[in-house]
């Protein structure tokens, strides 16, 4: 069993007048892909935003690499080595692809080996390296958002619904990318509605409902148990093949 990199215990978050998270407990282990699944409105995005400090945890603890982070500001959390790809892709549309990547490095240049690795994963970004990110297609924007998250070595990659609204062939590309990242033992926490992708890349799974974790275990076990899928997610893998 690999060591725990990120752990949430009893995390509660309010957004305005509404309590969204009601005591979230789960862990992401080093070198593994942890899927965070659940119906719309279950609290998955709020959980990721709380981890990143974009919304404050009102109660509970968040521990990353042995350090409590729930009281830290977002920049400090990111600087600990957590890369976040938000649901809305989070690219800067008026900056070029290159400038978007540079922002993540904090330097004025990109290491050629990291850039080669990135272009190997996303060849489309090489072709569009000098154009403003705003003119990229939806799939390319998502590639850029993920590319920016991995251009520098990070301890944890937090990704929110990367396949949302993308064409099937782009989703296939992303599945392949996450498989390769998994092979390189990158630790990933991935929120995803696409169950086929979840099964393809996930090692562990936590299922949320109504702001709580209602199931945690291995992704393989959930994929094999159709009744459990129905009960937790209201779907079965068969219909998503």
């Amino acid at each position: 069993m690999s060591e725990v990199l990120l752990e949430l215990r009893g995390v509660e978050t309010r957004v305005g007048r509404y309590q969204i998270l009601h005591g979230v407990d789960f862990a992401a282990r080093r070198g593994r892909v942890t899927m965070l699944l659940g119906r719309n409105g279950a609290g998955k995005t709020t959980t990721l935003r709380t981890i990143m400090g974009l919304w404050r945890a009102g109660a509970g603890s968040i521990t990353f690499a042995g350090r409590r982070i729930e009281a830290l500001g977002t920049p400090e959390i990111a600087r600990l080595g957590i890369a976040y790809v938000p649901e809305t892709m989070g690219i800067f549309s008026q900056l070029t692809v290159r400038e978007n990547l540079l922002l993540a490095t904090g330097r004025d240049g990109l290491a050629s080996d990291r850039l080669d690795r990135l272009f190997a994963l996303f060849p489309a970004l090489r072709e569009r390296y000098s154009v403003p990110a705003g003119v990229l297609s939806g799939g390319q924007k998502q590639m850029l958002a993920i590319g920016r998250a991995i251009i520098e070595p990070r301890s944890l990659l937090v990704v929110d619904e990367p396949t949302k609204g993308l064409a099937p062939h782009v989703i296939e590309v992303l599945i392949e990318v996450f498989r390769r990242l998994k092979q390189s033992e990158t630790t990933i926490l991935l929120v995803e509605q696409n169950f086929r992708m979840a099964v393809s890349v996930g090692d562990d799974v936590a299922v949320m409902d109504d702001g709580r974790i209602v199931h945690a275990g291995s992704m393989a076990d959930l994929a094999a148990d159709e009744a459990l899928q129905h009960r937790l997610l209201g779907l079965s893998l068969a219909v998503h093949q």
Partner: peptide
């Protein structure tokens, strides 16, 4: 590089913070 950060802040401050800026 600072100018790039300023433009990123103008576009979306939260995204910029999430990059550690």
């Amino acid at each position: 590089p600072m100018g790039r950060v300023l433009q990123a802040i103008r576009e979306n401050e939260f995204r910029a913070e999430a990059l550690g800026l």
